[in-house]
């Protein structure tokens, strides 16, 4: 067992930032901490790095009690959201910093430090920019320098706070793949914080979903997506349509039509059920939820529709471009039937 977090609680004056949080990370695992802002994910990262102390609980790494160690003795590589590069140092000096500040008996020789810096510059594909200053780099390049600086100390754990937060969409996607590759090459246990569900599901081995300082669910991306344990997880991981239904024996009855129910527990009786935009069929006649086409978005792999029911509720649905939805026009009346619903 690599990283063990047990019953961590952290309060800021009256506000519980983290409440009884426990999870474990396997050696070399790539873990995402996913949650909306204010869910406590950055606080958790800071506790792991030793920049804050929890009120109660334990943090162990390979049998080492991390709470007895200060931030500088934990050998945790932290990449800050703002990158926090040293502005007056060149890229190479930034990367070498963690090695240069070691006490002389542990410090590698000048040549070794030089070699490490070169190796890392190559890893982050900025071999020719070692002499530049951070201000002369683009956002994506700074991000990579911050990562190389954290990797230079040969960290036990790598922590990344919203690593792609400040970057534009294209660079983000590129860096995402690249980060995964770096992780696979170095094999260091990595935790990253994000509020972007797509990023978390795309990148991580497992995802820890946080809400209001508590863990909602931990699981592999597919598991999380297919079997959400709570309405929050379902809603947070994608677009969610909600309708009332009558449940019995795993079937949701909407009065005239029905759909199978996916649920973590057996439910019966009147319930609100949820469905994804793509778990739907559209029909020209009932039964179904009657709705008018409010908007048509043809961009992307799917046709995206917004439908409005007579009561004013708006549904979002997605359909293949060559499906029954392709010749719909604005204000057409359709009947919507979900093919699969979720209940909690």
């Amino acid at each position: 067992m690599s990283l063990v977090v047990q019953n961590i609680t952290k309060r800021f004056s009256d506000f519980a930032a983290l409440n009884d949080v426990s999870f474990e990370a396997q050696p070399g695992e790539f873990l995402a901490l996913l949650g909306p802002s204010g869910s406590g994910k950055t606080t958790l990262l800071r506790l792991l790095a030793g920049l804050d102390r929890p009120d109660t609980g334990r943090i162990d790494f390979d049998g080492l009690d991390y709470l007895t160690l200060s931030a500088r003795d934990r050998r945790v590589g932290m990449v800050f959201q703002s990158y926090a590069l040293f502005r007056h140092m060149t890229v190479a000096q930034n990367i070498a910093f963690g090695l240069n500040v070691r006490p002389s008996k542990d410090r590698p020789s000048k040549a070794e430090i030089q070699a490490t810096v070169q190796r890392l510059l190559k890893l982050i594909q900025l071999e020719d920019l070692g002499k530049r200053y951070p201000s002369q780099l683009s956002g994506g390049q700074r991000q990579r320098v911050a990562l190389a600086r954290a990797l230079a100390i040969n960290p036990r754990i790598l922590l990344l706070d919203e690593p792609f937060g400040a970057l534009d969409a294209l660079v983000r996607k590129d860096l995402r793949r690249w980060l995964r590759r770096i992780h696979d090459e170095t094999g260091v246990t990595t935790l990253f914080v994000t509020h972007d569900q797509e990023e978390a599901l795309d990148l991580a081995d497992r995802v820890v979903v946080l809400k209001d300082g508590q863990i909602e669910q931990i699981g592999k991306p597919l598991e999380l997506y297919r079997h959400p344990q709570s309405a929050f997880v379902f809603d947070f991981l994608g677009t969610s349509n909600q309708v009332p239904a009558n449940l019995s024996d795993g079937i949701a009855d909407f009065g005239g039509f029905s759909a199978p129910v996916v649920s973590p527990k057996a439910l019966n009786g009147a319930q609100t059920v949820r469905f994804r935009p793509f778990d739907t069929h559209l029909h020209h006649e009932g039964p179904g939820f009657e709705a008018k086409v409010l908007s048509l978005l043809p961009a992307g792999a799917n046709l995206r529709l917004e439908l409005q029911s007579p009561t004013g509720q708006v549904f979002e649905t997605q359909h293949a471009h060559d499906s029954e939805a392709s010749d719909l026009r604005l204000n057409d009346t359709v009947y919507l039937r979900p093919s699969k619903v979720y209940a909690f």
């Binding site: 200060s70 500088r72 932290m78 800050f80 926090a84 007056h88 500040v101 230079a152």
Partner: peptide
């Protein structure tokens, strides 16, 4: 920026090193 100081600490710098190598030069 407090995060710059915290970055120095996570990289293993003592408070004195952080002061002399990071804060004063800037």
């Amino acid at each position: 920026d407090a995060e710059v100081e915290e970055a120095a600490a996570t990289l293993g710098a003592t408070p004195l090193q952080t002061t002399l190598r990071v804060i004063v030069p800037s």
